[in-house]
Design a protein around this nucleic acid. Structure first.
Length: 495
RNA sequence: GACCCCAUCGUCCAGCCGGCCUAGGACACCUGCCUUUCACGCAGGCGACGCGGGUUCGAAUCCCGCUGGGGUCGCCA
């Protein structure tokens, strides 16, 4: 079947219910806003519901503050959800970590139906298996070592307290069809689908199980998600079949890209929604820009609001090529939005941005002793408000004595890695990391700290370096250090 | 490496159930106009159907192959 035939397939009669399911493992990602946008618009267009579900089943990576940041970021862009952990709804809880009993129950159903089995293989054995498959250049996948264990054996090992997971008993012959409504049918040999882990040894479900169970229980009618999921969709279809449930309609959106076409990543692009907010991008402009990534309004129109998009939205108009996220165009669109604001709207936007009371209040202790008159405040603090800084007058000071520029650049990136790895964000943490980092590189702090100061503030004299960095925030600091590193590595030629 | 997806200007999109396409719009870049400056605005320029085979009177549009790019291959999502 071709894509156009798939699109002509009988329309779903179920009420429209869509969702986004971010994982709270870091900063709120533009990719989340991107997918949320299309789900939101689709729901609104069809009078359906837009659900927010938090996928926090990875105990080792979930972060407490991350969930709240996701809420805040989605509120900021203006994509309001109808059901979610904070607002409730008829199919809660909407946080996967609170749905343990549901997953346990459904795992048991599959076990009872003979659609799943216990597996006692250790991660060591699996790692070895993978290494061996890699060495033999064979395709990867679990070898079904535990698939034929008999019940008595399983019971005995369970009783002995041996750790185990539950795996899906996937068919070994034939093929499965994934009906992607954007591309047509994708046929996958069952041989390509291995016996996926459904329940981890800590009792938590994997993404595959939790996702399918929740989408079904939450009556999700259309799954609009990123293309990176398309390879695991056969597993999900198999799960729907194993449970005997009706599948949702699948739509896999193209992936946002870095300028080298790889999947968008924080190493090559600012990916946090908070960065764009702090750098002075307006929420409607961000949404408008995101809508342009893979979709077109029609009639060559590029500037439009969310409300204007809803009635004309059409999934048929999704372009499947991976769109490169281009800051220049975002900035241009943002400019249009600013030009079209009234005086009051502009003032309000400014006051809601970094001219907010709580942000200015963070500046007060840093600047009080450094100004003699109020009129010195703005010139003394400009770098607290700017996004990217102009380094042209200080670039020649971006040096560490006796260190090659390429190594200075590399060293700076190592500093970014250090503060990225920390969960806390404070001037104490930044100070500790900067010191340890300087020592590790064998640099002198009188050199490395002035370099950081120049990069963070664009000047040699500023309030306390680490206090300043802390106020600037992780997103802006990361961007400035990365940009400076690029500049140094390229001899000042990068833009 | 295996599997899957994708393929129009540097970038984002339009066109793609074949002819109206000497391929349209936008960003970026360049030039000029406007202007006391800068910016805005306006006008113009540069610039693409990846390659090779088919099918057809006719292909950017349909088919096949190749090439290229991307994604996935975890007790992460």
């Amino acid at each position: 079947m071709t894509a156009s035939e798939a699109l002509q397939a009988p329309a779903q009669t179920r009420p429209v219910r869509v969702r986004i399911a971010p994982s709270p493992t870091g900063d709120p990602h533009v990719g989340t806003a991107y997918i949320a946008l299309f789900n939101y618009v689709f729901a609104r267009q069809h009078g359906g519901k837009f659900v927010l579900r938090i996928e926090d089943t990875d105990q080792t990576r979930a972060r407490r503050d991350s969930e709240q940041m996701i809420f805040d970021a989605l509120h900021w862009v203006g994509l309001e959800w109808d059901e979610g952990p904070d607002v409730g709804g008829p199919y809660g809880p909407y946080r996967q970590s609170e749905r343990g009993a549901i997953y346990a129950e459904h795992t048991q159903i599959l076990l009872d139906k003979g659609e799943a089995y216990r597996c006692f293989c250790t991660s060591e054995r699996l790692a070895e298996l993978r290494a061996q498959q890699q060495a033999e250049k064979k395709s990867h996948g679990y070898d079904r070592h535990c698939r034929s264990l008999d019940n008595a054996d399983v019971a005995r090992r369970m009783a002995a307290g041996e750790a185990s997971v539950v795996r899906l008993k996937a068919p070994t012959e034939g093929s499965i069809v994934v009906r992607d409504r954007l591309r047509g049918d994708v046929v996958i040999d069952h041989a390509q689908v291995d016996d996926q882990v459904l329940l981890k040894s800590d009792g938590m479900p994997t993404y595959h199980l939790a996702n399918v169970v929740d989408d079904h229980l939450m009556h999700i009618s259309h799954v609009i998600r990123a293309e990176e999921w398309i390879s695991s969709t056969p597993k999900h279809v198999l799960l729907y079949k194993a449970f005997g449930w009706e599948e949702p309609a699948w739509y896999h959106m193209p992936l946002l890209r870095n300028s080298d076409k790889s999947k968008i990543s924080k190493r090559k692009n600012p990916v946090s929604i908070n960065y764009y907010r702090d750098a002075g991008i307006l929420a409607p402009a961000l949404l408008n820009f995101l809508a342009l990534m893979g979709w077109s309004f029609g009639e060559d129109r590029e500037k439009f609001t969310l409300a204007e998009m809803i009635p004309v939205f059409n999934l048929d108009r999704i372009a499947l090529g991976g769109p490169v996220f281009n800051l220049d165009k975002l900035t241009w669109l943002n400019e249009k939005y600013i030009h079209d604001m009234s005086d009051d709207q502009l003032v309000d936007a400014l006051l809601g941005w970094r001219l907010r009371r709580d942000y200015l209040k963070q500046l007060a202790p840093l600047i009080r002793q450094r100004i003699k008159k109020l009129d010195e405040f703005i010139p003394a603090t400009d770098f607290f408000f700017a996004g990217d800084l102009d380094y042209s007058t200080v670039f020649d000071q971006f040096v560490i004595p006796d260190v090659l520029p390429a190594d200075v650049a590399k060293g700076l990136l190592a500093f970014v890695e250090r503060f990225e790895a920390r969960e806390t964000w404070s001037h104490e943490m930044l100070h500790d990391e900067a010191k340890a980092w300087t020592d590790e590189l064998g640099w002198k702090s009188k050199h490395s700290f002035i370099l950081l100061r120049l990069i963070a503030t664009g000047r040699k004299a500023s309030p306390g370096l680490f206090e300043t960095m802390a106020v600037l925030g992780k997103e802006v600091l990361r961007r400035r250090v990365r940009r400076a590193a690029e500049l140094i590595a390229s001899g000042g030629k990068a833009k």
